[in-house]
Simulated assay, not measured.
Amino acid sequence: MRMRLGVQTLLFVLLFIPGTILQAADMTLWDVAGRAEISLDQAAGKLPSPGIVYVGEFHDNAAHHAAQLAVIQSLDKRKRPVAVGLEMFQHIEQSVLDAWVAGALSEDEMRRAFARNWSQDWHLYRDIFLYCRDRSIPMIGLNVPRSITRKVARNGFESLTPEEIGKLPPIVCRVDREYEEFLRRVLGHHGSESGFRRFCEAQLVWDTAMAIYALAYLEDHPEHTVVVLCGMIHAWKKAAPEQAARENAEVEQAVIQPSVKGRWTPGSVSKQDADYLILGLEE
């Protein structure tokens, strides 16, 4: 326990002091394919450039967000063109993110926009947003309106009106057995079969929309690496990355996930799940 807290304390000390950049060598990852511990700096040299890098999170875990910022910093330090894709912002509010990066929006205004799009937890994401603004790193809204995913989870994709479908990118919501089995494996199964099926449809809409919007940015900015910050469930290879691969198999992708004690550890995660695990953040 003391060792785990020590690693998190190191992240907080190095990342949450303004103007401080975590040295890549200070964060250790598990290379899933190579079955070895490596530094973030070593991993950064292997990440797609250009392409998409997913960095998963538990939304309420400050150490996970510190690690996400370290990944962004590590790529930025290598002078790679980087953009940050956000599950936390709806795509229809892209102009707000553009204004923030351009320095045309105050922090209070962004905090209110963040609450409108996601939650009151601005403080957990604040350092990421400040770093992107200070470094002029583009930020991309990847999400769909919450009302749509909630309605799909409650009533199914077929319940959406033409107006609601018009607020989505082109999506074919067909939950195949492999996707359903993936969600059962990572989440377990509770409730009725029909309820779980609707939940799968909502997740698929979420995953597919984020993938399409990330790919659309790459199409317009083909030299960039898009770092997608999203919940761990969306970041697994069978989730958003799989949907992106179906849209464009030529785009290189990589998945970085926090290791979670008793659930997702070096011994339980395969290269079909993720490429790297961030060690030392286990709950």
Results as ranks from 00 to 15, higher is better:
residue 17 I to F: 13
residue 18 P to L: 10
residue 19 G to V: 09
residue 20 T to C: 13
residue 20 T to V: 14
residue 20 T to F: 12
residue 21 I to R: 14
residue 21 I to W: 05
residue 22 L to N: 01
residue 23 Q to M: 08
residue 23 Q to G: 15
residue 24 A to W: 03
residue 26 D to G: 02
residue 27 M to R: 04
residue 27 M to E: 04
residue 28 T to D: 10
residue 29 L to W: 01
residue 30 W to V: 01
residue 31 D to M: 07
residue 35 R to I: 01
residue 36 A to V: 14
residue 36 A to S: 14
residue 39 S to H: 11
residue 40 L to P: 03
residue 42 Q to D: 14
residue 42 Q to Y: 06
residue 44 A to S: 14
residue 47 L to N: 03
residue 47 L to A: 04
residue 49 S to L: 08
residue 50 P to S: 09
residue 51 G to F: 12
residue 54 Y to Q: 03
residue 55 V to G: 01
residue 55 V to Y: 06
residue 55 V to R: 03
residue 56 G to D: 02
residue 57 E to Q: 12
residue 57 E to V: 13
residue 58 F to V: 14
residue 58 F to C: 11
residue 59 H to A: 09
residue 60 D to T: 15
residue 62 A to M: 14
residue 62 A to Q: 15
residue 65 H to P: 12
residue 66 A to Q: 12
residue 67 A to L: 06
residue 68 Q to N: 11
residue 68 Q to S: 06
residue 69 L to K: 09
residue 70 A to P: 03
residue 73 Q to M: 05
residue 73 Q to P: 05
residue 73 Q to H: 06
residue 75 L to R: 03
residue 76 D to I: 00
residue 77 K to P: 05
residue 77 K to C: 07
residue 78 R to L: 02
residue 79 K to Q: 11
residue 79 K to N: 15
residue 80 R to W: 07
residue 83 A to N: 08
residue 84 V to Y: 00
residue 85 G to F: 03
residue 85 G to Y: 03
residue 86 L to W: 10
residue 86 L to Y: 00
residue 87 E to R: 10
residue 90 Q to A: 10
residue 91 H to L: 12
residue 92 I to P: 00
residue 94 Q to Y: 07
residue 95 S to M: 08
residue 97 L to W: 05
residue 98 D to Y: 00
residue 98 D to P: 00
residue 99 A to V: 02
residue 100 W to F: 10
residue 100 W to S: 03
residue 104 A to N: 12
residue 104 A to Y: 00
residue 104 A to P: 00
residue 107 E to F: 07
residue 110 M to Y: 01
residue 110 M to K: 05
residue 110 M to H: 02
residue 111 R to F: 04
residue 112 R to W: 05
residue 113 A to Q: 09
residue 114 F to H: 13
residue 115 A to R: 15
